[in-house]
Amino acid sequence: MTAENLTTVPHVDRPPPLPARWTQARILGTTLLCLWAAAGLGLIYFLVRSWNPDLLHRYAPNYLSGLWVTIQLVVISIIIGALLSIPIACGRMSKNRIWSGLAYGYVYFFRGTPLLAQTFLVYYGLGSFRHQLDAIGLWTFFRDAWYCALFAFSLNTAAYQAEILRGAIESVGKGQWEAAKALGLSRIQALRKIILPQALIVALRPYGNEIILMIKGSAIVAIITVYDLMGETRRAYSRTFDFQTYIWAAIIYLAIVEALRNIVDWIERRITRHLQR
């Protein structure tokens, strides 16, 4: 379009004003905020009204030990998962049909089925193979619900982490590999010095999300007799029938997840300073 064409356009409505002082939105927003505030105040009122020092005295140590179990479970399975994810990610990117097929199948299975079903399969399913497991000396491991949960969670998170790793490595441009090669770096050197530093920036946020998902997902171990934070909550609730036991758990989980998200944000801001414009 040239300037002459523009002048021939007959008449155009003025664009609507930008939503600077759009009172309707403000009313709606304020109403919603008030509702949130009311919910928050209601919650505080509920907790104050049902404040019970005995209950706190009796169950606070349980909650702490439950929290510790949750943290242990998540940290250890994330680490094992990270180690397992490396060969799987390599398999996914491999040109070898069998390798990549196996890795793909693994990832698809663990990402396509619920963690709860996987945990049941490991805990109750393997429980019915007690004698076979005993024979190969693995029963002492699978006897314990905690180890079963750790096993299922590690395999599960390995699948997700492998995809994160693969996605991050593939997000780095091909030119980077070529440039590294041109400089005479070996493949391993290129991966370590050129590709991974860039890939990890991309992977940071998905990794953070994966940890958060694991913390939330770990609540299901309560169903297979592990006394994590959720397990202790259910135990306290089954004794007291006091709903505040669940509210406390909700507050603790929310606090952890929010803290973690803020930490990831902070790290991301720091390591991407050179990219900011």
Binding site: L18, P19, A20, W22, A25, R26, L28, G29, T30, L32, L33, W36, I212, I215, K216, G217, S218, A219, I220, A222, M230, Y246, A249, A250, Y253, L254, V257, E258
Partner: peptide, 28 residues
């Protein structure tokens, strides 16, 4: 939205429901 209060209300919503374990949300 450009409206601060609306943004805040929306952010609280996501914070709460992304932060709680799904199992706990279900019990609640």
């Amino acid at each position: 939205s450009g409206e601060k209060t609306l943004r805040l209300a929306g952010n609280i919503y996501t914070t709460v429901f992304r932060g709680l374990p799904e199992l706990l949300t279900l019990f609640l």
